[in-house]
């Protein structure tokens, strides 16, 4: 774990007057500055205004092509990107592993070179292999957006989570953010550890010891590991619940789902340990009754549906900033 001078690394920000934006690709949040994130959120505010109109469409990316390439199943992320691109007037083409030449054995690099040759400005990709978007980014002239790679990163999910927190609490500076569940296999958790830490929150990771990271060492910013959920939730400002995948039990990492529910489910009794205005978040899809009780998932503190709506605005802002840049 690294000990850092946080105040020096991440100076406080105010309303942006000039743009600090430097990104050509969005691969993870580890290379984001606080100013860049705040600039992105400021741009997303303008996108939210568009989404609140009767006709939710502007011609900004007319003539630009956004390709979504998903080698793993996804409903909300792909739909969210496609809605974002269409709201900005871009042309959208979708490729899934099942419909691409991947089934004929074409390599990932060959596929993206073909997409490039046909013309794409932004390539949004999800892939089961950690690091795949980094390989692709080296091969293509378009901007690459990582929509989830293996266990590694899901930066746009973390950005929309931070944006949602910002709209309720103004920011995360000094906040206690608890992530509960299968941290070990979660790209959402990894990107959120970066995002929350860069924006000034203290991250607490909670889950069964078999699903918590042990050997991250220098790879991630400092986070507190607290396997006891009551202790983790005490005075929390933000609670992120992760989806529990049933394969984890088949893989021998959990004795039973029932035990997980008993020890780690976020229910009303446990939620009461957090601050009264703590936000309950979940990246979806939700296993109601497993990692989260239905009354909490739909309760007054839940912002799960807002996360989905904000995802479109944040992704619009990203597409705008990437597709508009001169390459």
């Amino acid at each position: 774990m690294r000990i850092r001078e946080q105040s020096q690394l991440y100076p406080p920000i105010t309303k942006p007057t000039a743009s600090p934006w430097q990104h050509r690709h969005i691969l993870d949040l580890d290379d984001f500055s606080r100013q860049e994130m705040e600039f992105l959120f400021h741009t997303a505010d303008a996108m939210k205004e568009i989404l609140g109109r009767e006709i939710k469409r502007v011609p900004t990316l007319r003539g630009k092509t956004v390709v979504t390439m998903f080698y793993e199943p996804s409903t909300r992320t792909r739909l969210s990107f496609e809605m974002a691109a269409k709201s900005l007037g871009a042309d959208v083409t979708s490729i899934t592993a099942a419909t691409s030449s991947a089934v004929k054995g074409e390599s990932l690099v060959d596929t993206v070179r073909t997409i490039q040759a046909l013309g794409s400005d932004v390539l949004v990709m999800r892939h089961p292999c950690s690091g795949a978007p980094y390989l692709v980014a080296q091969q293509v002239a378009s901007s690459v957006v990582n929509a989830g790679d293996g266990w590694h990163a899901h930066p746009t999910q973390a950005l929309l989570d931070l944006y949602t927190i910002r709209s309720h609490h103004g920011g995360v500076e000094g906040a206690k953010a608890v992530i509960i569940g299968d941290i070990l296999h979660s790209r959402v958790a990894r990107s959120n550890i970066w995002g929350l830490t860069i924006m000034g929150a203290q991250v607490v990771l909670c889950g069964p010891p078999t699903l918590l990271p042990r050997f991250w060492g220098q790879a991630y910013p400092q986070a507190i590991i607290e396997p006891d959920i009551e202790a983790a939730l005490a005075d929390a400002d933000i609670i992120m619940v992760l989806r529990l995948q049933r394969e984890r039990q088949q893989g021998g990492l959990l004795p039973s789902i029932e035990e997980y529910v008993r020890l780690y489910q976020l229910d009303e009794r446990r939620l009461a340990l957090a601050k009264p205005d703590a936000l309950v978040m979940h990246p979806g899809p939700v296993n109601e009754g497993i990692e989260i009780a239905p009354e909490v998932a739909h309760g007054a503190q839940s912002v799960i549906e807002e996360q989905v709506a904000n995802g479109v605005a944040v992704r619009m802002a990203l597409l705008y900033l990437l597709a508009g840049g001169a390459h």
Binding site: A18, W21, F39, T43, L61, G324, G325, A326
Partner: peptide, 12 residues
């Protein structure tokens, strides 16, 4: 649309 860096600050 196509700025050299940096992109504009979008206002309200």
């Amino acid at each position: 649309l196509s700025w050299r860096d940096p992109p504009p600050v979008v206002r309200r």
